[in-house]
């Protein structure tokens, strides 16, 4: 009698535990995809970073090339396209509206502005693509960095990256307070502002307008002294 009862107790417990385990297993395997219904307009993510020790009203002028640099893995090239042109003209218009004055190529400026199309495909080591801007901005500058984006001031020529993404980026470097050249070394410039468009690619001029509007409206500190 006792043996038979114990047997029943054991069987009941095993059944109960098995049932719960099975149910738990089924449940963990189903997770719904929350972003399947995300619209194209809701997809872009605008990320801006700035050096908050900088007073942006100290700058008066900026230098901005008409071309966009396409940074693709370990090389770069400049490009003109309707989207690229719209990006450059929107950035120029926005900075002008904030009281900064654009200068012609090669003229001294307080801010160096870069519109970059990042087109990286895999993880690796890339050379520094900014010699193009260094020449454009009229100085023999190297290119230093704001933390977190792989541009370290301690490594001038190469950096590692871990991206497999295509995105647009706007960067600003401080030319006004550039360190003086010592010997043959190029002084490092500091990136004081950085904006990226992530989440979805910018493929038409309407999307460019939306992006630059969002980027500058969330960067109220970009303002020249009146």
């Amino acid at each position: 009698m006792n043996t038979s009862k114990q047997h029943t107790v054991g069987k009941g417990s095993i059944w109960m535990i098995l049932l719960l385990l099975a149910a738990g297993g089924v449940l963990t395997s189903c997770r719904d995809s929350a972003i399947n219904d995300l619209s194209p307009a809701d997809s872009p993510v605008y990320i801006t970073n700035y050096d908050n020790s900088i007073n942006f009203s100290q700058y008066k002028t900026f230098s901005l090339p008409d071309s966009v640099v396409i940074q693709s893995n370990d090389n770069y090239q400049t490009v003109r396209s309707s989207v690229a042109d719209q990006f450059v003209s929107n950035v120029a218009a926005a900075l002008t509206a904030r009281g900064y004055q654009r200068v012609a190529k090669g003229q001294p400026a307080d801010l160096g502005v870069a519109v970059i199309r990042v087109d990286n495909q895999y993880t690796g080591i890339a050379s520094n693509p900014y010699s193009y801007y260094s020449n454009y901005w009229g100085g023999g500058y190297g290119y230093g960095g704001l933390g977190g984006y792989g541009y370290s001031p301690y490594y001038q020529s190469y950096y590692t990256y871990q991206v497999s993404e295509q995105y647009w980026e706007i960067q600003m470097v401080d030319l006004k307070n550039a360190p003086t050249t010592s010997g043959t070394d190029k002084p490092q410039l500091n990136v004081i502002y950085d904006a990226t468009v992530r989440g979805s690619d910018v493929t038409d001029t309407q999307a460019v307008n939306t992006a630059t509007n969002a980027i500058f409206s969330q960067s109220p500190y970009l303002k020249a002294a009146q």
Binding site: Y46, T48, N49
Partner: peptide, 12 residues
């Protein structure tokens, strides 16, 4: 801190 992120969030 010194970063601003504009996005539509889907929180789960």
């Amino acid at each position: 801190d010194n970063q601003s992120v504009s996005a539509v969030q889907t929180r789960t």
